[in-house]
């Protein structure tokens, strides 16, 4: 069965005819060709597919696209400023070497952005807990944790 799905992605209205069984992540990657959102598992553990739906971090592999009908979606491609400079959270990942192969990174950043909104000065422990839904195989998390602490502070400071 095909359905028409419409939503706003990174500020732009988009719509397409898709099969009802199309996952949100598939819609983002295949229909919109926004391939920064990744798929690393099939059991909702890895978090590489994390995007924001109406301002909150969700796993785009765990809902069908139709569940995002009318929603406001933000993907990694919509995070940096229009002029090409990085968002403070992205900048913090770069400065603290919070990424290696880069595959889990968009999900990490998207989750961190949402987390930082409520935690302007998080402790290391809070950050580690906040990453329960994101897996990284490269960094041992050490520098991701540092990045998120720094990024959250930078976001709070830039308000």
């Amino acid at each position: 069965m095909s359905v028409k799905v419409s939503m706003k992605v990174n500020g732009k209205p988009v719509s397409a005819e898709v099969e009802a069984r199309t996952l949100l992540v598939t819609f983002i990657r295949e229909n919109l060709r926004l391939t920064g959102t990744h798929v690393g598992c099939d059991t909702a553990q890895c978090g590489a597919c994390t995007v924001h739906m109406n301002g909150r971090a969700i796993k785009s592999c765990s809902i069908v696209a139709m569940q995002a009908e009318g929603a406001d979606i933000l993907t990694i491609e919509g995070v940096a400023n229009g002029n090409g400079t990085l968002h403070p959270m992205q900048q913090a990942f770069k400065e603290n070497h919070g990424l290696q192969c880069g595959f889990c990174t968009p999900g990490m950043v998207m989750n961190a952005l949402d987390f930082a909104k409520g935690h302007p000065n998080p402790s290391e422990k809070e950050v580690r807990e906040s990453l329960e839904g994101n897996l990284c195989r490269c960094t041992g998390y050490h520098n991701i944790v540092k990045s998120i602490v720094a990024g959250a502070r930078a976001m709070a400071a830039s308000k």
């Binding site: 990657r29 926004l34 391939t35 920064g36 959102t37 990744h38 798929v39 993907t75 990694i76 491609e77 995070v79 940096a80 990085l86 992205q90 990942f93 770069k94 400065e95 070497h97 990424l99 192969c101 880069g102 595959f103 990174t105 968009p106 950043v109």
Partner: peptide, 19 residues
């Protein structure tokens, strides 16, 4: 030195096989 590859990975511009 901060990594040259980071900008593309942090902005979703990496190009993995499935992309």
């Amino acid at each position: 030195i901060q990594r040259k590859e980071d900008y593309r990975f942090l902005t979703g511009a990496g190009q993995y096989t499935d992309d």
